[in-house]
Design a protein around this nucleic acid. Structure first.
Length: 659
DNA sequence: AGCACGCCGACT
DNA sequence: GTCGGCGTGCTC
């Protein structure tokens, strides 16, 4: 081969197992975006590396053209490859995220100049309290690149503090990425950044229009965007000059991408910051146990913001022991909760009831023979939705009418609703408080952002007295006149065999309770529970976050769970049960004799959802020491254990969901 | 991920 | 006799 060309490995935005080689004009270099013929198409990809001339060259094609874009840095390439190896995802699947689903050969027509042309760090500097000033100074200590946890209760002014760190990086002409859970990317949050920096930050999330998406991607890749606020996928973008990473609400489970490529954006953000040698801030009022342990082991630094800035008070949390309440059947609001709601209405204030269960009743059974209505394609009960007058599977979308007679014993009109969903709580509340204006806040009733905004407006305008909702009620939005939050079933999140169930339950309840009394009014939260002595309930009642952390860490140590151990889940799926069993056993049998002494392999066992959308599911769980590297072993297992006839294997490093 | 190739069921 | 199902394999 002459000197005018070299051989280069090119990464394409496809989930391929191997990277192919092209002939490349000598003037091109590693990191450049290029167009390469692939099959019948021409794809945009990245030059990953120069390689020695291959033995067989007859299939090799030549790169067509480089794109007029800044080349991707060596650190970005290193990060992509590291993340791919760690998560056992094809690097091309991550490159696809990095490219944002955009045709890079078509730059936006409108210049991105007007977009965010480097936010102005001096635009609107707030007056910081003394602890805020101290915290901001600590964030700006440049000589320590350990990840830094910024810890402070809701309303302590964490955002104002980290905005000082953002301002410092913007002054240096560098980019800053603030990661947020998708749900937190609201206009209200955006307005705060806009007010502080004079211009809108550049947004990145799944809801962007194609036009905006294109504009924002090019602004980020060319360095025109200074401050970027994004959901988890924003971590993979090719920043022109990234100076700092911030992960707001670092404990949020929404950072975990559950579909392939499976990754945890907070953990990968720490890795990216390490590779890029830039500071990273993890921000939370309720840090994850992983982060807490890293702080205790001095792997992370920690800065505290102890006071609630502006004088608003945390809600008073009260437990209602449901064992003592002895409620009659089909009734779910206890006497103290009913009393508290009345008092709230009399004071002209608003109340909210939280139950993390959509629909009318989670289970419908036959009073005669006990038969339970189940989804034909999933291991799940059908949930009655009175609104549509139908039964629904919450996992696959299957719907059916309520049968007139029992499917099993044929007794007519024998089905009975069992347990509460939000619709049923609303029904009870309407009976108890006939004058109250009751509204439901549930994802299936708020299909558009507009519908959600309208509900928020009605709540803010006090056209609603009682708001009843699921999870989506827990996040964002504060209602100045909401002074009471009742939790119907505080124990709901505790069950379910998932190692982080207790942690998530605690975080969710704390967030829900935090909806009450965020302005000058004091709020209160009433939790209905059958286990008031449970450490979670006690910690919530006493506002004792450290107490919860310590109790939960002890549990995790006893049960050998994260953050003391590392987990890897391997999920096998196939509509043919025999086949999926055979493939899972083969994989496990190959793996078992190759484990280190510090490793244990559990399963194969049926997944929690043993049947999902008509597919049978088996799981293996690998428990290892934190230090162990499992990627090579699992990679080899995937290659060696040829699976057949449609068995899908998903590997989830550091699993959060055990469905 | 696409797309083509390749062997078994119901139709103009 | 064909049209077409999607299982398997390939893409530099």
């Amino acid at each position: 081969m002459d000197a005018s060309h070299f051989y280069g490995q090119i990464l394409l935005p496809l989930p391929l197992k191997e990277n192919f080689v092209w002939r490349a004009p000598a003037e091109l270099s590693v990191g450049q975006w290029v167009q390469a013929p692939f099959g019948k198409k021409v794809l945009t990809g990245l030059i990953l590396a120069r390689v020695a001339p291959p033995a067989v060259t007859d299939k090799i094609k030549t790169i067509l053209a480089p794109l007029p874009l800044p080349p991707v840095s060596g650190k970005m390439l290193e990060f992509l490859l590291w993340a791919a190896r760690y998560s056992l995802s094809p690097a091309g699947a991550l490159l696809k995220i990095a490219m944002g689903g955009i045709d890079l050969t078509k730059p936006p027509k409108v210049s991105a100049e007007t977009l965010s042309a480097t936010a102005d760090p001096e635009a609107n500097q707030p007056v910081l309290s003394s602890p805020q000033k101290d915290a901001a100074e600590q964030l700006l200590l440049a000589d320590d690149l350990r990840p830094l946890l910024l810890f402070g209760v809701t309303g302590s002014g964490k955002t104002e503090v980290y905005c000082e760190a953002i301002a410092a990086k913007l002054r240096q002409g560098q980019q800053v990425l603030v990661l947020m859970p998708e749900i937190a990317l609201t206009t209200a949050m955006l307005a705060r950044f806009t007010a502080r920096f004079g211009t809108e930050p550049t947004l990145w999330h799944s809801g962007l229009t194609p036009k905006r998406r294109r504009e924002h991607w090019f602004a980020i890749a060319t360095g025109k965007a200074g401050l970027i606020i994004g959901a988890r996928s924003a971590l993979f973008l090719p920043y022109a000059d990234l100076g700092m990473l911030i992960v707001d609400e670092e404990h949020e489970a929404a950072y975990k991408q559950e579909e392939p490529p499976i990754y945890h954006a907070r953990d990968l953000a720490v890795a990216r910051a390490h590779i890029e040698k830039i500071p990273i801030l993890l921000v939370s009022a309720t840090p994850s146990l992983e982060t807490i342990v890293n702080v205790r082991q001095k792997k992370y630094r920690r800065v505290d913001l102890p006071e609630r800035f502006g004088g608003a008070q945390l809600p008073k949390v009260q437990l209602i022991d449901m064992r003592a309440e002895k409620l009659p059947p089909r009734q779910f609001l206890s006497a103290p909760l009913r009393q508290a709601i009345s008092e709230t209405f009399q004071a002209g204030e608003q109340a909210a009831l939280f139950l993390n269960r959509r629909g009318y009743a989670p289970l419908t059974l036959c009073r005669t023979c006990g038969y339970r209505l189940q989804c034909p394609s999933c291991s799940a009960w059908l949930v009655e939705h009175k609104r549509h007058g139908r039964l629904q599977c919450h996992h696959c979308g299957y719907q059916t009418e309520l049968p007139r007679q029992c499917t099993a014993c044929k007794t007519p009109e024998s089905f009975a609703a069992c347990g509460p969903g939000v619709e049923r709580v609303a029904e009870e509340a309407a009976l108890l408080f006939p004058q109250a204006r009751v509204a439901l806040m549930v994802s299936d009733l708020l299909p558009t952002a507009q519908a959600a905004a309208e509900l928020m407006d009605r709540m803010q305008a006090q056209a609603i007295d009682l708001l009843i909702g699921t999870q989506i009620m827990a996040k964002g939005h504060h209602f100045p006149n909401l002074t009471l939050v009742g939790v119907i079933d505080a124990d709901l999140g505790l069950g379910g065999g998932d190692p982080r169930a207790a942690e998530r339950c605690y975080q969710l309840l704390q967030q829900v309770a935090g909806r009450a009394g965020r302005a000058e009014r004091a709020g209160r939260a009433l939790l209905q529970t059958y286990q008031p002595e449970h450490p979670i309930m006690q910690a919530l009642k006493n506002g004792d976050h450290t107490g919860f952390i310590n109790a939960e860490l002890r549990e995790r140590e006893i049960w050998q769970l994260p953050p003391y151990k590392k987990l890897v889940a391997v999920l096998f799926e196939n509509s043919d049960l025999k086949q999926v069993e055979q493939d899972a056993v083969l994989f496990a049998d190959w793996l078992r004799p190759r484990l280190l002494a510090s490793m244990r392999l559990l399963g194969p066992a049926p997944a929690m959802m043993a049947l999902l959308r008509g597919r049978h599911r088996l799981r293996l769980l690998l428990v290892t020491a934190r230090k162990d590297s499992v990627q090579n072993l699992l990679q080899e297992a995937l290659l060696v254990c040829k699976h057949h006839h449609g068995t899908k294997i998903k590997i989830d490093v550091d699993p959060y969901s055990f469905f």
